[in-house]
Simulated scan of single mutants.
Amino acid sequence: MKPNPIVGQGTPLHRWQTSTQLAQLAHVSVAQLVPEGCRAVIIAPHPDDEVLGCGGLLQGLATLGRPVQLISVTDGSASHPGSRRWPVARLNVERPQESAEALHRLGLPPHGLQWLRAGFADSQVAAREDELAAFIRRHLKPTDVVFATWREDGHCDHEAVGRASAVAAQAVGARFYELPVWAWHWASPEGSQLPWHRARKIPLSSAALARKRHAIHAFASQLEGDPQIGLPAVLPPYVVERLLQPFEVVFV
């Protein structure tokens, strides 16, 4: 098992803001990624990954009127181990509710969104990866454009979801793109850890960025830790700010 790279405060935001690699990425529009007549399928390991990874993309899809299928692989109930403030039973209920509120804040119309909760165990997705690939495949069409977390993102669930989604997309002939989420924490802005040759930048307007920020703040459980047991927040401010640059990156 490889070591967990999501430790400490990670790569400082200012290093990403001055990254020459990021600065020179080619731009891509939402319309180019998801052409007319296609459906976007967003596959999130946990409730919040769909907003953290592609809250701007989701807004663009809503503006274009593209149909969206969201698949939440887990309910994210393992985010606060040992917490009495955020026990598993509470998280099972509240984390999906937080996602629903976040999607509302992004302006996604309920009639244009299909949402599946797959019910896999948080932090245990890799143990049922083949089953997940089969589940995703059943819900895909060849004309779909699939977005999932990057297969090397650094979190075990993110990587398993990326691998399973890639297998499912290939099986049906759908296009497949990957989204870095935790990679911004551990990767080097000038290094070779990210597949820069595959990276494209989706520009976000100031209004879109503000809506994404507002949506992230719907995830109260992730913004709070549990001081009684010394548990820090999953999404402390320095993590949130790294995810609120005026663009999103997709690996094509």
Rank of each mutant, 00 (worst) to 15 (best):
residue 110 P to R: 05
residue 77 S to D: 15
residue 88 V to Q: 15
residue 126 A to K: 11
residue 56 G to P: 07
residue 119 G to C: 03
residue 114 Q to V: 07
residue 105 R to Y: 01
residue 98 E to T: 01
residue 53 G to F: 05
residue 125 V to I: 09
residue 52 L to T: 04
residue 122 D to K: 13
residue 126 A to R: 14
residue 112 G to F: 00
residue 127 A to T: 12
residue 133 A to V: 02
residue 88 V to H: 12
residue 119 G to A: 05
residue 94 E to Q: 10
residue 70 L to I: 08
residue 135 F to G: 12
residue 89 A to S: 13
residue 60 G to P: 06
residue 129 E to V: 10
residue 92 N to Y: 05
residue 121 A to C: 14
residue 108 L to P: 10
residue 119 G to S: 09
residue 99 S to P: 02
residue 92 N to A: 11
residue 106 L to E: 07
residue 84 R to I: 03
residue 52 L to V: 02
residue 136 I to Q: 12
residue 74 T to R: 10
residue 81 P to Y: 02
residue 56 G to E: 00
residue 62 A to V: 09
residue 132 L to D: 07
residue 136 I to V: 15
residue 113 L to H: 12
residue 113 L to W: 11
residue 75 D to K: 00
residue 62 A to D: 08
residue 58 L to P: 01
residue 111 H to P: 09
residue 111 H to G: 14
residue 67 P to N: 00
residue 101 E to D: 13
residue 86 W to E: 10
residue 130 D to M: 13
residue 114 Q to C: 09
residue 129 E to D: 08
residue 138 R to S: 15
residue 100 A to S: 07
residue 55 G to D: 07
residue 98 E to D: 03
residue 106 L to N: 09
residue 124 Q to Y: 15
residue 97 Q to H: 05
residue 128 R to Y: 10
residue 92 N to S: 12
residue 72 S to I: 05
residue 126 A to W: 13
residue 76 G to T: 11
residue 86 W to L: 08
residue 59 Q to W: 04
residue 63 T to V: 04
residue 101 E to M: 14
residue 62 A to P: 08
residue 71 I to D: 05
residue 115 W to I: 01
residue 110 P to S: 03
residue 97 Q to W: 03
residue 118 A to T: 03
residue 79 S to P: 04
residue 61 L to I: 07
residue 102 A to L: 08
residue 103 L to S: 06
residue 119 G to N: 07
residue 115 W to L: 06
residue 118 A to D: 04
residue 130 D to R: 15
residue 138 R to M: 15
residue 80 H to L: 01
residue 58 L to V: 02
residue 71 I to M: 13
residue 90 R to P: 02
residue 73 V to E: 04
residue 78 A to H: 13
residue 133 A to M: 02
residue 127 A to P: 00
residue 77 S to M: 09
residue 77 S to P: 09
residue 79 S to C: 06
residue 106 L to H: 11
residue 112 G to L: 14
residue 78 A to M: 12
residue 90 R to N: 06
residue 110 P to N: 06
residue 123 S to L: 11
residue 103 L to H: 01
residue 92 N to F: 07
residue 89 A to D: 10
residue 68 V to F: 00
residue 107 G to L: 06
residue 79 S to N: 05
residue 109 P to I: 04
residue 64 L to D: 05
residue 55 G to L: 02
residue 72 S to H: 13
residue 110 P to A: 09
residue 71 I to K: 00
residue 138 R to L: 15
residue 105 R to H: 08
residue 60 G to Y: 02
residue 106 L to D: 06
residue 86 W to I: 09
residue 104 H to Q: 10
residue 120 F to A: 02
residue 127 A to S: 13
residue 126 A to S: 12
residue 104 H to P: 01
residue 63 T to A: 06
residue 89 A to E: 14
residue 87 P to I: 02
residue 120 F to D: 01
residue 62 A to G: 11
residue 115 W to A: 14
residue 81 P to G: 05
residue 106 L to Y: 04
residue 120 F to W: 04
residue 95 R to I: 03
residue 137 R to A: 15
residue 57 L to T: 01
residue 69 Q to W: 06
residue 111 H to E: 15
residue 108 L to S: 07
residue 122 D to V: 08
residue 80 H to Y: 00
residue 116 L to M: 04
residue 74 T to P: 10
residue 62 A to T: 07
residue 84 R to W: 00
residue 93 V to S: 14
residue 83 S to I: 06
residue 103 L to G: 03
residue 88 V to K: 15
residue 101 E to A: 15
residue 60 G to Q: 01
residue 136 I to A: 14
residue 122 D to R: 09
residue 72 S to W: 11
